[in-house]
């Protein structure tokens, strides 16, 4: 005891005591917390997907969509949007939204695939809506015809997403995004749920075979094979004109100055 009393006046004593106190409080709190907190933080494999989704929903979505997904002034109701819609919005990182604006932007997803599926399963309980398409449905694109897909793409998609899926402008700051990052599953989900300004392409409008063909064509576009050289963003003549004036004519004028320089 005497040794300890001697240590009392050591200059590190107070720091050590502080750390000890912090450790006691934090370990104690986490223990108590575990007992008090409901399912929200307690995700175990024994719970069903819906329960897990419910917890994630309460934590990350309810502030805008309401605790029961009924919608608030900040976000629409989710009754009837279906699992496919949730999976599309969350897996493309659009939900949760970074900031309100004319359009929600694609970004890195905040939830992993398991959590995304749980959210989708939970939201699907609010009311019937399009389900996440099955793997066979999505993978059908591998057997589809690319030229048929191109024809369907140009008829149904190119008017907003541009001829090469590079995206295009819509009204008041809204836009059709580039399809460069979209996975076959996400493209399928977008077609059946119609996110943001996009129309819904039901199976009556575009049969599953047609959807598969379109996905096939987009995969072809995303290979980015450019037989003509650099593609300039595949945006059409605007970037071509820019390159002509800045690079082409710029280089020629530099040469003209060189040739026109007086010989000394």
């Amino acid at each position: 005891m005497a040794n300890l009393a001697k240590f009392r006046r050591n200059r590190f004593a107070s720091v050590l005591v502080l750390f000890f106190a912090l450790a006691v409080v934090s370990i104690g709190f986490s223990g108590v917390n575990k007992l008090v907190t409901p399912a929200a933080a307690k995700i175990g494999s024994e719970e069903s997907l819906v329960d897990k989704g419910s917890a994630l929903f309460a934590e990350g979505c309810s502030s805008c969509h309401g605790l029961n997904g009924q919608g608030t002034s900040d976000g629409p109701t989710l009754a009837g949007v279906g699992a496919a819609s949730v999976h599309f919005q969350v897996s493309t990182g659009r939900m949760p939204m970074a900031a309100p604006g004319a359009q929600v932007m694609r970004k890195a997803p905040s939830y992993n695939e398991e959590e995304t599926l749980a959210l989708a399963a939970y939201v699907a309980t609010f009311g019937p809506g399009p389900a996440i398409p099955s793997e066979e449905q999505v993978n059908e694109w591998q057997n589809a015809s690319v030229s048929e897909g191109g024809e369907l793409f140009r008829t149904n998609c190119a008017q907003c997403h541009n001829f090469a899926g590079s995206g295009g402008a819509l009204t008041n700051g809204k836009y059709a995004p580039s399809l460069g990052q979209a996975t076959p599953l996400q493209i399928y989900e977008a077609m059946i749920t119609g996110p943001q300004s996009m129309p819904i392409f039901s199976d009556e409008t575009l049969t599953p075979e047609s959807k598969a063909a379109i996905i096939r064509y987009i995969q072809e576009l995303n290979k980015s094979e450019n037989p003509g050289g650099m593609d300039l963003g595949r945006l059409g003549p605007v970037t071509e004109g820019l390159v002509l004036w800045v690079v082409g004519l710029g280089v020629l004028i530099i040469f003209a100055v060189w040739i026109g320089a007086r010989v000394r």
Binding site: T155, A158, N162, G167, G168, V238, E240, G241, L244
Partner: peptide, 11 residues
């Protein structure tokens, strides 16, 4: 019956 976004003429 088709049209593409970003339909522009040459400069």
């Amino acid at each position: 019956d088709q049209v593409t976004a970003g339909s522009q003429p040459d400069w």
